[in-house]
Amino acid sequence: MSLVRGLKHDYGDFKLDVPEWEILDRGVTALWGPSGSGKTSVFRFLIGLEACRGFSWDFKGEDLARLPVPARRLGVVFQSLELFPHMTARENIAFAADARGIAAGEARARLAELSLLLDLDQALDRRATLLSGGERQRVALARAVIGKPRILLLDEPFSALDVDRRAEARKLVERVIEAERIPAVLITHDRGDLDALAVKVTEIREGRIV
């Protein structure tokens, strides 16, 4: 179990105040709340886009909040996916492997593994701008996990997909999490995500855990 503590920030018209929040070591811990409740702010603090005094994140005896962003070793999937549009799907995924310093041979093997897992074979050599919505999502997921992160963070990962595709996408995420054996934090406003994936659900409203 990892423990987030002292997440406090005053944005002027909005206050975030999360004194303590437990994230499970296995399965999906979901942070659920309506839009404007502060979910994405928590996500930004966790990945290090924002910082505040007193914030700590104890992960197996190590305080991740004190580490620089790259050293936190997180896998992230943004709501907007943020694929690198000038790269192919393969290059997008390989970028993350390179960034984590994974040796070329191992990276190739991991890519093959993930490609199989996420059914990406047909898409690998297409530029990111030419991928379908579902493919983009799977590439983002593969990119997030190829570097063997400590924990996978997902910010509304299914909101860009139409309803029919969400169920399939949720299954894929579940499959990846199980195969890779990494804990995940899911930020969502969608109850469907909770039913399908969450082991533990924490509700957030107006910046506070309820």
Binding site: I47, G48, L49, V69, P70, A71, R72, R73, L74, G75, V76, F78, S80, E82, L83, F84, F95, A96, D98, A99, R100, G101, R143, A144, G147, L153
Partner: peptide
Amino acid sequence: SGQVAVARALGASEPRIFARV
């Protein structure tokens, strides 16, 4: 900025983000 944030979170160094992203 979104792509840069992802690249940082994925562990990329500043020069790598600058040159490749």
